[in-house]
């Protein structure tokens, strides 16, 4: 288990390196620089600015310097938010994004799993048909469409909930729901499929044959087995929730890191954009690893030797 973790972490190194390299060179090779939008400055001052941020060095040297800085945990100062380092900005935005994302994931897993499992148990019932139609809607309609529609109906027309901002419980409902809906849909479909398969399995027939009540059979045997594909889907879900939160944070004016990313890209804030990309990549990789480590606990057939 420990060796496996180490091996996986070692395997993540080339991935992170490629991410850093692509992002770094793409940003640097693009036309335009971080100080373009300011008043034109005398060449001496420009040269000083460039020197202060090491922009006058050859690109490869800048890259190596950046790699070295990262290894010591220094993601550099933000080029735009002058008094802040990237680490400070990410540290400020992350708790907000984390709350938003975690709430959406928990809701997605609980609601999606329950709805999917129940639909499978009541196969071809009205509930089944309704759930699957709703799930198709959730998959087909993107969250940047769902979010304004929810805001329009619940926020503006019915005036039940605030339409933006962050801080109170009321304000969190719409963004969390909008972020969770597509994932609820995917998980419900996935669970229904795997539950139908499990219900045909031999061990379920055995459980029934030995006289277990339907309820005990479902609770003790079927649900656990049906949960496995959902667990391995959590990796892609994290990635989707992170991507989604970039949009949702924009729409609802939530001060998380997603907003920094779009703003940073538009402002050519090199260090901020790099920092956010690396941070997100690390979160996704860490979550995938966590899921793979949890897997053998639920499914003894899987072992990481």
């Amino acid at each position: 288990m420990f060796a496996y973790t180490l091996r996986r972490l070692a395997g993540a190194v080339p991935t992170v390196f490629v991410i850093i390299a692509i992002a770094f060179f793409m940003i640097r090779l693009a036309p335009g620089g971080p100080f373009d939008q300011e008043r034109s400055v005398p060449p001496e001052i420009q040269a000083n600015l460039d020197r202060a941020y090491h922009l006058d060095e050859p690109l490869v040297q800048q890259f190596l310097r950046y790699l070295g800085d990262i290894l010591t945990g220094d993601f550099g100062p933000s080029f735009r938010y002058k008094d802040f380092t990237v680490t400070e900005l990410v540290a400020e935005g992350f708790p907000v994004s984390l709350k938003l994302g975690l709430a959406a994931m928990v809701i997605a897993v609980v609601v999606g799993f329950a709805a999917g499992a129940y639909a499978a148990l009541r196969r071809n019932s009205g509930f089944d048909a309704a759930t699957m139609t709703l799930a198709m809607t959730g998959i087909a309609v993107p969250n940047f469409v769902i979010a304004p529609l929810l805001t329009l109906t619940l926020g503006v027309w019915l005036a039940l909930l605030p339409v933006g901002g962050w801080g109170s419980f009321d304000q969190a409902i719409l963004p969390v729901v909008a972020l969770a809906l597509p994932e609820i849909a995917y998980i419900a479909r996935l669970t229904r499929g795997s539950m139908l398969e499990v219900l045909r399995a031999d061990f379920v027939r055995t459980a029934r044959a030995k006289g277990l009540s339907e309820r005990a059979m479902v609770l003790r045997h079927a649900l656990q087995a049906a949960a496995l594909p959902v667990l391995s889907f959590l990796g892609p879900t994290t990635a989707a929730v992170i991507t989604g939160s970039v949009v949702i944070e924009q729409i609802f004016g939530i001060p998380g890191i997603g907003r920094y990313f779009v703003q940073g890209a538009l402002n050519r804030d090199y260090t901020l954009v790099m920092g956010v990309v690396i941070f997100y990549a690390a979160v996704i990789i860490a979550f995938n690893l966590l899921v793979d480590l949890l897997y053998p606990l639920l499914d003894p057939r899987v072992r990481h030797d």
């Binding site: 991935t15 692509i22 940003i27 036309p31 991507t243 890209a265 050519r268 997100y280 990549a281 996704i284």
Partner: peptide, 19 residues
């Protein structure tokens, strides 16, 4: 596999912004 782990949406966004 390596490309798979990249958060692609970010790269597309960067691409559109910078180029």
């Amino acid at each position: 596999d390596v490309l798979y782990a990249l958060p692609f949406i970010f790269f597309v966004i960067l691409l559109m912004v910078f180029f």
